[in-house]
């Protein structure tokens, strides 16, 4: 089966500082990938390159065979609609109510009618138990609520894949569970996901694959049970010994 996302020789440098180099990786439909690694390993930078929020210095990112790196501004907008993203700090639009946060892109980008977009938004909100928050502004939500709504906002575009950039790092410990359970539900429904996370338990239970990133490379790609039981590289062993 052709991979949904294929990353070829991806390199990112800031001036003379190499963040990561020559990364090759593939993601297949329905896969859940957890991207682990020590802080500063370049995980978030790598993730942000996948939808071109950060521009890679060289290499290719193919989504269903189309290269995002060399695509025009217009093509890029089109390709991005297939890639959802959930941010560490939620990034809900502060000037819009919850419902408008969710329906903005479906209406403006996909040309959906307001009624259809809102109906769909309410359905999605019900699945995360937040339909009663439809008309409030983001500043009155708790972190856990905001992040669940951010996930709903990404889902409203029917993406093929969702990128999660440390989705629970900014949450109070007691709110982490509610966000992880939403993500777990998505995994069960075969949503393709790439997750940068420090939640080892979650990565172990939910992922199909663990990518371990350190020193600007993906050093290991393994099934979670293998990775956690037998990390191959010394870097991964050191990382796990600190985390668990």
């Amino acid at each position: 089966m052709e991979p949904m996302i294929k990353i070829e020789n991806l390199t990112k440098k800031f001036k003379n500082n190499t963040i990561f180099s020559d990364i090759n990786a593939e993601v297949h439909k329905g896969e859940v990938i957890s991207l682990l690694g020590p802080s500063g390993a370049g995980k978030s930078t790598f993730l942000r390159c996948i939808n071109m929020l950060g521009e890679p210095t060289s290499g290719k990112i193919l989504l269903d065979g189309k290269d995002l790196v060399t695509s025009s501004e217009k093509e890029l907008i089109q390709l991005r609609t297939h890639i959802g993203m959930v941010f560490q700090s939620f990034n809900l639009f502060e000037n819009k109510t919850v419902i408008d946060n969710i329906t903005l892109a479906p209406i403006k980008v996909k040309g959906m009618s307001k009624e259809d977009a809102e109906e769909k938004a309410h359905e999605l909100l019900k699945t995360v138990g937040l339909d009663d928050k439809a008309d409030v502004y983001p500043d009155s939500l708790s972190g856990g609520q905001a992040q669940r709504i951010a996930i709903v906002r990404a889902l409203a575009m029917d993406p093929e894949v969702i990128l999660f950039d440390e989705p629970t790092s900014a949450l109070d410990p007691e709110k982490v569970g509610e966000v992880l359970s939403v993500m777990q539900d998505l995994a069960k429904k075969d949503m393709t996901m790439i997750i940068v996370t420090h939640e080892m338990e979650f990565a172990k239970n939910v992922s199909d694959q663990i990518w371990f990133m350190d020193e600007g490379k993906i050093q290991e790609k393994q099934a979670p049970e293998d990775f956690f039981a037998n990390p191959k590289t010394a870097n991964a062993q050191r990382f796990l010994s600190k985390m668990i």
Partner: peptide, 13 residues
């Protein structure tokens, strides 16, 4: 983060 979220959803600059 505000404009990044917008771009990630496929909105133009």
């Amino acid at each position: 983060g505000q404009s990044e979220a917008a771009l990630s959803l496929g909105l133009s600059k």
